[in-house]
Nucleic acid binder design. Structure first.
Length: 271
DNA sequence: CACGGATCCTGATGGC
DNA sequence: TGCCATCAGGATCCGT
């Protein structure tokens, strides 16, 4: 569920409410992708100063450290003053003076990791190789084109890799390539400067729109306050195999790239 | 180093 | 309370 828009919508839904909270208790459930990396008692008494985002990570600035949260494939966060008792898929509860922050993650590809700060090797291992933020000034069309020129792989799996740009996942990669009119199988190195500029713009547009709409989901995404997203009502290609293209009515195609499904319109998107 | 594939885990869905 | 195969929003690790 969580690509950049969902993570950002989640962040916006609880960042202000949790700011200043004192951590009173932490309950861990089944193991997540990586171990917490510290004793629970090290967290107690610390304050949550702010919540930031880097790629698909949520970064909770604590008074003496940093908590990195990742939602994996199936994770969601809730924050509130009266959450129900932890269920079988609630694997991290942080009870604070302002409410409980809970990570719900059936598949457990998500993680909560403690680091002393962003320079901590633990944090660097997770954040150090991430590409540029797509909604920041640092994401520029020329630099993006330069990066594509050096890569032989197909553009769609490259977008998922997180080295050229972070935050674009399987849904928005297909959507952005549709908006840009580029076939997902096109070798990155063969994309011309104007087409790279179009893709650069499409990535920003699709992500900004998704954040504005409250995040997507094919199923059950909701933010930390329990409100659902609406993007699925407007997907141009994702999940629409065999259905008519919303622009030209040709049937949307579905293929596999790197074990992931890709959707595109063979008419609107050129190799 | 760049690339493709296997892998972690649980649940939903659809064919039989 | 049927069983089995397939697929699902991510990202790392391991060969080549």
């Amino acid at each position: 569920m969580p690509e950049l828009p969902e993570v950002e919508v989640t962040r916006l839904s609880f960042a202000e409410r949790i700011a200043g909270a004192r951590i009173d208790a932490v309950l861990v459930g089944k193991p997540l992708r990586w171990p917490l990396g510290c004793e629970v008692r090290n967290l107690l008494g610390q304050r949550v100063l702010a919540v930031r985002r880097r790629g698909k990570y949520l970064l909770l600035d604590l008074s003496e450290g940093l908590l990195l949260m990742h939602l994996g494939m199936s994770g969601s966060v809730s924050f509130g003053g009266s959450l129900p008792a932890a269920g079988k898929h609630d694997h991290f509860d942080m009870v604070t003076s302002l409410g409980t922050l809970r990570l719900h993650d059936p598949r457990r590809f998500g993680a909560v990791v403690y680091a002393s700060g962003e320079d901590d090797p633990v944090a660097q291992k997770l954040l150090g190789r991430l590409g540029v933020e797509p909604l920041s000034e640092a994401f520029d069309a020329l630099g993006f084109h330069q990066l594509l020129k050096g890569r032989k792989t197909a553009i769609k799996p490259l977008l998922l890799g997180g080295q050229a740009v972070v935050g674009v996942g399987n849904i928005y990669a297909s959507e952005a390539l549709f908006l840009a009119g580029i076939r997902p199988t096109t070798k990155a190195s063969l994309i011309s400067k104007p087409r790279a500029a179009r893709l650069h713009r499409a990535i920003q547009d699709v992500l900004v729109n998704a954040v504005a709409k409250g995040g997507s989901t094919l199923r059950d995404f909701s933010n930390a306050a329990g409100e659902a997203g609406h993007f699925q009502l407007e997907a141009m290609v994702y999940g629409r195999a065999g259905l008519p293209c919303r622009v030209c009515a040709a049937p949307i195609k579905s293929i596999r790239q790197g074990q992931r499904s890709t959707f595109y319109c063979a008419t609107c998107q050129k190799p």
